[in-house]
């Protein structure tokens, strides 16, 4: 029995990832603060793919609980994906430090806290894979979401360093940078159809990239080039245009 641990299992991307991995033979730990809402998904995975989907309580912001949380998992997962994330509201966060802090802690500190624990274990076991869902928003800060973006930038840098460190231990670290995805997080936004992925597309991309041992992926794939161009724009112009 091989378990995948999904942190932040309530999101639309997490739901699609859970199904994708279960379809490919994995049992799943669905970890979230409120596991009651995850009952339908765990039943669904059980019926669709005849795989276990155990719900486990996990609070990304309760850092002190993370070690006990990981210790309680039996059997241990052979891979973990962090789908923890919250966009927050930029205008509120720039005027209210507590809101900004929450965005940073949710999108970065909480992820770092739990992944440190898992990374240490995987390093010792010399096996396992770690997937972090970051964001294209971390590639360059923009006024509309730079607090969220800065947390994601930190997370991307963290994953990059972790990958470097765990290479010798044969532990794969995959950074996922989604562009626009049609989810709860983006509802109400007027997203361009050609650049917008469905959660199921993102999940398929993640599974494929992880199986192939990739390091960093953008999804949809064209975001790699969109961001390449955006990153090339000189700061003098960027600050006026965006």
């Amino acid at each position: 029995m091989s378990y995948l641990l999904i942190l932040g299992a309530k999101s639309d991307i997490a739901k699609a990832v859970a199904r994708e991995y279960a379809k490919n033979g994995y049992d799943i730990y669905l970890a979230a603060r409120n596991i009651e809402e995850l009952l339908p998904l765990s039943q669904d995975i059980n019926i669709r793919y005849e795989k276990e989907a155990k719900r486990v309580i996990f609070d990304a912001l309760d850092f002190k609980s993370h070690q006990a949380f990981y210790d309680s998992l039996d059997p241990k997962p052979i891979g973990v994906i962090s789908a923890i994330g919250s966009l927050g509201i930029q205008e509120k966060a720039q005027n209210d430090f507590e809101k900004a802090q929450k965005i940073i802690e949710t999108n970065y500190v909480g992820c770092l806290s739990i992944l440190n624990i898992i990374a240490n274990d995987y390093e010792q076991q010399k096996s396992g894979f770690i997937i972090g869902i970051s964001s294209v928003a971390g590639d360059r800060g923009r006024k509309s979401n730079y607090i969220y973006g800065s947390a994601k930038a930190a997370f991307s840098a963290y994953l990059s360093g972790l990958r470097n460190r765990l290479h010798d231990a044969n532990v794969q670290v995959l950074t996922v940078k989604p562009g626009f995805v049609n989810t709860q997080m983006t509802k109400g936004m007027d997203l361009p159809a050609k650049l917008t992925a469905e959660p199921e597309d993102v999940a398929r991309d993640i599974y494929k990239a992880q199986q192939k041992g990739k390091n960093v992926i953008y999804t949809k794939w064209m975001w790699r080039y969109v961001m390449m161009i955006i990153k090339m724009i000189p700061e003098t112009l960027f600050k006026q245009w965006f």
């Binding site: 639309d12 339908p40 998904l41 039943q43 669904d44 019926i47 669709r48």
Partner: peptide, 9 residues
């Protein structure tokens, strides 16, 4: 459309 879970069979 997003509420697409099988609950029991």
């Amino acid at each position: 459309i997003k509420h697409n879970c099988f609950l029991s069979f």
